[in-house]
C-alpha cells in the first residue's frame, strides 16, 4: 500500500485508512498495513484486538472485524483485529493537528499522534507500530495476546 506522497511546494500528503471502533473514529497510514485478511473468528486467531491494545474500558462491538497485518520494527509482522475500513483518505499534513497539550501525553502513550478534524467528525490518527511495540508504555503487545483469547 502506498504511503507518503509529496508534491513540490505543497504539503506532504498521507494516504489514510479510516475506521471506527466503539464509536470513536481512527485513521492509520496505509503503509503501516501490509495486508488485510478476513477475520477467522475468535477461536481462529491469536491476534491482538484494537480496543485491547488501546485499553478501552469496555469491549466495543465490531461491525465487521478484519485482520490487519502490521509490519513492526523487530520480529515477524503482528496481526491486529480492527473493524472494517470505512474510507480511504488523502490528507495534507497541513490538515492534521497535534493533540492539545493536556491530552497529548496520554494519547502518545498509545500511539495516537494527531487529530484530523473533518466537518463535525474528529478522526484520531494512530501509529500501529507504536501501539504494538513492546516498548510502548502500558504496551499492548504483551498483554493483548492473552486478553484476546477471552474475547467473543
Amino acid at each position: 500500500m502506498s504511503g507518503l506522497g509529496e508534491a513540490p511546494g505543497r504539503p506532504r500528503t498521507l494516504n489514510l485508512l479510516r475506521f471506527e471502533v466503539g464509536g470513536a473514529c481512527f485513521a492509520v497510514e496505509s503503509s503501516q498495513i501490509a495486508a488485510l485478511l478476513p477475520f477467522p473468528g475468535p477461536g481462529g486467531s491469536s491476534a491482538s484486538w484494537f480496543h485491547q491494545a488501546l485499553e478501552y474500558a469496555e469491549t466495543p462491538t465490531y461491525r465487521a472485524p478484519v485482520l490487519a497485518v502490521v509490519p513492526v520494527e523487530e520480529g515477524p509482522p503482528r496481526q491486529l483485529v480492527m473493524d472494517a475500513l470505512d474510507e480511504l483518505l488523502d490528507v495534507g499534513l497541513d490538515e492534521i493537528q497535534p493533540f492539545p497539550p493536556l491530552i497529548e501525553p496520554f494519547a502518545l502513550r498509545k500511539g495516537l499522534w494527531g487529530v484530523l478534524p473533518r466537518g463535525r467528525q474528529t478522526v484520531l490518527l494512530v501509529d500501529l507500530r507504536r501501539l504494538l511495540a513492546p516498548a510502548c508504555p502500558g504496551g499492548a503487545a504483551s498483554e493483548s495476546a492473552s486478553a484476546s483469547r477471552s474475547l467473543p
Binding site: Y56, Q97, F99, P100, F106, K110, L112, V115
Partner: peptide
C-alpha cells in the same frame, strides 16, 4: 479519546482548531 483520565472527557474542534 481512549485512555484519558476521568477529568478529560475528550476534545472538540472549534472552527478547525482542536
Amino acid at each position: 479519546v481512549p485512555n484519558l483520565p476521568a477529568f478529560l472527557p475528550g476534545l472538540i474542534h472549534i472552527r478547525g482548531d482542536i
